[in-house]
Amino acid sequence: MSKLRIAIWSVGLLLGFILLTKSCTTVDASHEGIKVSKIGSDRGANDIENVTGWIFYNPLTSFIEQYPTFTQTKDFEPFTVSAKGGTLFKIDPTLNYHLVKGQGANVYRKYRKELPEIEDNILRTIVYNSYRDVANTFTPDSLVNNRVGFEELVESKLRKALTDDGFAFENITSNLTPPESLQAMIDAKNTAVQNALRLNNQVAAEKASAEIAVTKASGLARAKIIEAEAEARANELKQKTLTPLLIQQQWIAKWNGSLPTTQLGTSSSTMIQLPIK
């Protein structure tokens, strides 16, 4: 075999190997593959085939598009939305979502774009419109003070819009930021409310303490009155029972038999005077 023929075979084998590598790919379980035809006026819009595993195709007439089916996290550039009255709020959203299995072909038919381009254009528009529409139903104060309700409404709109496009909503972080001037006004208002509540609580506590003191004082005064009334009653009973005869009998009962005397010269006399019957 001549050197020229060997060279031709070598080039042919090389080209065949290159063609083989270019016409073979694999789609793993975490992705959804679709085989798209390049032939025809619709350029594959109606000729799409879902494929998995090892795929052989003619790169001159078709190509393989792959969409991941696991969770995707997209951090969008910040944007502003307006509440009622035109007050602007900053939104810096981060979206978690995934492609619904079996929807890859529909997504490609609808947008004919790779996923990064779909995120930067289609999904960003969906996210922006959801925040814009919901924010317009809130006043500035209610938007700041009811962020949970605001985000629940946004998530509801996102869930429906993404489902219509073949995606499943997981969660989103809004990072809602009001204007500095509005935040300062709200902070001042909240501080005033908190101070008023604290003063009300302090007044209530002092009133309760005063009522307790009055109750204690009333109890002590009542106790003293009862004690005085009892003592007066006892003294009254004593006065009624201590007759002269009873006093003399008590004295005799305690007498030890000695006669008290007084010295008046040489005479003596007793101090006892018996009652005359």
Rank of each mutant, 00 (worst) to 15 (best):
I6W: 09
I226D: 10
K84T: 01
A45R: 12
T26D: 10
V134R: 08
H98Q: 07
F150Y: 04
L182E: 07
D165P: 00
S267T: 05
K113S: 12
L115P: 06
S2A: 11
S258Q: 05
N136T: 01
L13Y: 04
I6K: 13
L158A: 02
L14G: 12
L115Y: 01
E152G: 07
R124M: 06
L88E: 11
R43G: 09
P93S: 11
N129W: 00
S37D: 03
S23H: 10
P179Q: 14
L176R: 12
L123G: 00
M185I: 15
R43S: 15
L264K: 13
Y57G: 15
F79I: 04
N190S: 14
S62M: 02
V203G: 13
T73P: 02
Q183N: 12
T94G: 10
K38N: 10
K216E: 04
D47H: 09
A210L: 09
G219H: 06
E119W: 06
T243R: 13
N121E: 11
E211S: 15
S269K: 08
N195W: 08
Q72V: 02
Q194F: 04
P140L: 05
N121T: 09
L176M: 07
S258C: 00
T61A: 15
K110H: 03
I126T: 14
S174R: 09
K38G: 09
G40F: 00
Y57Q: 14
Y67D: 11
L199A: 11
A188V: 00
N256Y: 01
V203K: 15
Q103K: 14
W251S: 03
Q194S: 12
W9M: 12
Q239F: 05
V193Y: 06
A217V: 10
R233M: 05
T241S: 14
F150W: 01
L158N: 00
S269I: 01
G104N: 08
A213V: 04
N171E: 02
L246D: 03
R112T: 00
K3S: 12
N256T: 06
E170L: 04
Q194M: 11
K216D: 05
Q248N: 08
F150Q: 03
E155C: 07
S37T: 02
N175T: 02
A205I: 00
V193W: 09
A223D: 01
Q202S: 14
Y67F: 07
A228E: 10
I186K: 14
Q248R: 11
L88G: 12
I186M: 15
V144F: 06
G53V: 00
Q249A: 11
E151N: 09
A205Q: 10
L99W: 01
D120T: 02
E231Q: 10
K160R: 10
K84Q: 07
T266C: 10
G33R: 02
I172G: 09
A210M: 08
D28V: 08
W255M: 07
G219D: 14
S41F: 10
S258H: 01
T71W: 09
R147N: 01
Q72T: 07
A83Y: 00
T139I: 10
P59D: 12
A217L: 11
K110N: 03
I225H: 13
Q103F: 07
K35T: 00
K74S: 14
L153D: 03
G85F: 02
G16S: 11
D92M: 08
N146E: 07
S130E: 00
W9Q: 13
T25P: 07
A213N: 05
Q66L: 04
L176D: 05
T71G: 11
V51L: 11
R198K: 14
